[in-house]
């Protein structure tokens, strides 16, 4: 009974089926194998049609055996499918590897001009101290640029500014942002004032690596009934620390400007050599960053404030100079030359 030909045939089918599964290597092969071995027209399924020819006592045995083989096939198929999936995954992981040394795709983006960034930094610091931005015109009268700032014609202080004159008498290009001081005082008087005055200034100079005919200046002015030179020192020291670092050392030394009295200049310890002396600070250990002083009584008066009641301070700085120091730019001509190879460095 055990060697009934139909059982032998079944055994033959089992062996062949499992053998043929072993050579299947992909999804399609698995499908085909499944149809060939477990499908409706598979030989194994055909065996049921031969059941009539099998004696009744063997019949349950054959039926049981067919089911066993079917289960075995299904299990083998599942196992083999899993193996193939794993093999395919392994293969794809290997073949999909990229050359990570190829350059990345960078998002396109624009850039602000370095001096726009510099100005914004200055606005932000003074903004935090209550100073707001006030802007005035570039083409000015001699009156606002000089006379009202206590610099009469032929005053020796005029040597401090080489001026561009226009063909209209009394009309010049502002040599500093200081005329804005009088504009803002006349507009806000008798309110207290805390403003900064940024803008482009112009001086008749030979253009060189160190000097330009056009440059930014940021002026600041504070007017009130209780404003001292100590306040000026404190404000400017705080500014320097925020711009150059919390440990930046500063010093204030006397200087001269016709529109301030007393006048001073503030130096910050060279952040390149920390005071030891280097090329950047010309061996002095200090970098001059701004001019300042208590507003001259004449200027206060010209702005409408009574100098016996009000006092104030003013200061002015050159943002290009500060950028040059901070970014080690050795030629001031870079700023307005607009060479993209320079501008693109300020991302």
């Amino acid at each position: 009974m055990q060697d009934h030909p139909i059982l032998n045939e079944l055994e033959e089918l089992r062996k062949k089926g499992l053998e043929s599964l072993q050579v299947v290597q992909d999804e399609l092969g698995l499908q085909n194998w499944k149809v060939a071995n477990l499908g409706r027209s598979a030989p194994m399924t055909q065996i049921f049609s031969q059941m009539k020819t099998v004696s009744a006592e063997v019949r349950p045995l054959v039926g049981e055996r067919v089911n066993q083989v079917k289960k075995e096939f299904e299990a083998a198929l599942e196992e083999h499918a899993a193996a193939i999936k794993q093999a395919m995954l392994n293969k794809s992981l290997t073949s999909d590897a990229v050359d990570i040394s190829l350059p990345g795709r960078r998002p396109a983006h624009g850039r602000l001009h370095p001096q726009t960034k510099m100005l914004r930094e200055i606005y932000r610091i003074f903004g935090d101290m209550g100073f707001q931005v006030y802007r005035a015109r570039d083409v000015e009268t001699d009156e606002y640029n000089f006379e009202l700032l206590n610099i009469p014609a032929y005053h020796p202080a005029r040597d401090m500014w080489d001026t561009f004159y226009t063909t209209k008498p009394g009309v010049i290009l502002r040599t500093h942002t200081s005329p804005g001081q009088v504009h803002v005082m006349r507009e806000y008087c008798p309110e207290p004032i805390r403003v900064i005055l940024p803008g482009m200034c112009y001086r008749y100079e030979q253009i060189s690596a160190r000097s330009e005919i056009q440059f930014h200046q940021v002026e600041g002015i504070m007017v009130g009934k209780h404003v001292t030179m100590g306040d000026m020192k404190g404000t400017l020291t705080d500014f320097a620390r925020r711009l150059f670092g919390a440990n930046a050392r500063t010093r204030l030394r006397p200087s001269y400007f016709p529109f301030t009295e007393p006048s001073g200049e503030m130096d910050v310890e060279c952040f390149v050599c920390h005071g030891a002396g280097c090329q950047v600070c010309k061996n002095s250990g200090w970098l001059e960053i701004l001019g300042c002083g208590m507003i001259h009584p004449t200027v206060l008066r010209n702005g409408g404030y009574d100098p016996s009641v009000y006092s104030g301070f003013a200061f002015g700085m050159g943002p290009e100079r500060i950028s040059m120091l901070r970014n080690q730019i050795n030629d001031i001509r870079n700023f307005w030359a607009n060479d993209v190879r320079f501008l693109e460095q300020f991302s």
Partner: peptide, 17 residues
């Protein structure tokens, strides 16, 4: 100038605009 103490602003805050 170095001996003058650095102080913070204590004067009235101007109108903010």
């Amino acid at each position: 100038y170095d001996a003058i103490p650095a102080t913070r602003l204590s004067d009235e805050m101007p109108p903010q605009r």
